[in-house]
Structure formats: C-alpha cells, structure tokens
C-alpha cells in the first residue's frame, strides 16, 4: 500500500469507500435485527398482564384512604410492562456512545470473557438502542388505529389474528412510515459513532489522512452520507406515497 500522503484522488476515494462499507454493514444489520426486536419490545410495553389483579376483590369499592390506594396500586401492577418500559427508559435516556463502550467491555468485566470482536459489540449496541426507539414508534402506530377497527373485525367473526394481520397491520405500517424514515436516516449518520470503540468506519479512515497532513478527505466524508441518505429519502418517499391512496 502506498503511503497515505502520496495517494492519488481516486485511491483516496476508494479508501474512504472501504470505510463506508463498514458503516453500510452496521446500518443494514441494525435494521434487520432492530425492526423485529422492536416489535417484541412493543408487545412487552403494551402488556396488560397484572398477576395481582385478584387483590381488587379484597377491598370494598367504597373504602378510601392510603391502605386502599396502596392496595389498588399493587393490584394494578403490570410487571412485564414495568420492566420493558424501564428498559426503554434506560436505553433512550443514556448516550449511544456510552452504550457502545458498555457492550464492548461488559462481557469481559462481568463474565471474564473479554470481547475482542468490536464490530459485534457495535452491532449489538446499535440493535438494542434502535429497537428501543422503534418500539415506541410502533406503540404509537398501534395505539393510533381506531378501536372501531378491532370491533368491526370482531362482529364480522374475524379472529384476533385475522384482525391484526388483515386489518390493523397495514394501517400501523402507514402510520409509522414517516417517523421510521426519520430514524432510518439518523441511523445512517449514527453509524459513524462506532469509531469510539475502534471500528474503522469512514471517518476513522479519513482521520488517518488528516494525521498524514491532508485535510480534504475528512470533509469529503459528508458527501458519502449525503448521497446515501439522498437515495434513502427518495425510496422512503416513494413508499409513503404508495400508501397514500387512502386516508382515514
């Protein structure tokens, strides 16, 4: 390999493209896993399972006071929902950059198995982080489908599964496409964060040129992101338009 300082422009572009491929891989794998994982988290955060509901029977409705309120609170406790929402709060409430370090170092610190595979750590951190965001978008999308849609399905003798897949799902997808597009575009740019744990993505590649005394490659990396996001914007816009044949 020729020294960085003596590279021709096409060689520099190719070198940066190699780095951008890393961003692309993280982007695609994150979407691939976070989209379904997000749905699992959504079901968790919408869970209505309250195992202590029977406690409601022990108190007369007419009684008031602290003991009654406390019992009510315990009886209404939904463990799956509480656990999932706490998880989402932690993931959304802390920096993704910090989560990258945690997923890199935690296996070694907790189980004595040092994680030397930085890319895997990066992908796991990204999948979990984005799944948490996606889950909230899905939840809003599901909650926005009118109750009457479920009821109409039920009185027409459709099963719950049929109502979900034949009636509700498409409306949810239509509801969530604009906010999901936003997240997808943010994800493209966020992939550059992985360099903090030493994954050689495009900006890390470019910084090597900066150290060798050439600054323009670093600035040029913006064009790669712009171009990629430009294509995504067009594709997602088309998808949105395709579903706009009806409105509620």
């Amino acid at each position: 390999m020729s020294s960085l300082a003596s590279m021709t422009v096409p060689e520099v572009i190719l070198n940066l493209l190699e780095g951008f491929a890393q961003n692309g891989i993280i982007f695609i794998l994150t979407l691939l896993f976070a989209i379904p994982l997000g749905l699992v988290i959504t079901f968790g955060s919408m869970s209505k399972w309250a195992p202590l509901k029977f406690l409601h029977n022990f108190y007369d409705n007419s009684e008031k006071g602290i003991a009654y309120s406390l019992l009510n609170f315990i009886a209404d406790f939904k463990p799956v929902q509480a656990l999932t929402r706490t998880f989402v709060w932690i993931i959304r409430g802390t920096p993704l950059m910090l989560q990258l370090f945690i997923f890199l170092y935690a296996p070694g610190l907790l189980f004595g198995v040092p994680n030397r595979d930085r890319i895997t750590a990066a992908i796991i951190a990204f999948v979990i982080n984005y799944a948490a965001y996606f889950s909230e978008i899905y939840r809003a999308g599901i909650e926005n489908v009118a109750k009457g849609q479920y009821e109409a399905g039920q009185v027409l003798g459709m099963t719950k599964t049929q109502v979900f897949f034949k009636v509700v799902l498409f409306q949810v997808i239509k509801n969530i496409t604009p906010p999901m597009s936003n997240e997808v575009i943010t994800l493209v740019k966020d992939t550059s964060l992985v360099r903090v744990i030493g994954v050689t993505e495009i900006i890390m590649h470019a910084e090597r040129f900066t150290k060798a005394g050439i600054i323009w490659p670093l600035f040029s990396t913006g064009l790669y992101f712009l171009l990629f996001n430009g294509i995504l914007t067009i594709l997602l816009g088309k998808l949105e338009k395709k579903m706009n044949y009806y409105h509620n």
């Binding site: 009457g148 009821e151 109409a152 009185v155 409306q171 009806y246 509620n248």
Partner: peptide, 11 residues
C-alpha cells in the same frame, strides 16, 4: 352490527 361511525376498513 352496524356502527354509528361506520368503521369501514379504510385500506
């Protein structure tokens, strides 16, 4: 059952 607000499937 025919609903007050129709509840047709919009898609």
């Amino acid at each position: 059952l025919v609903f007050q607000s129709f509840n047709l499937f919009p898609q």
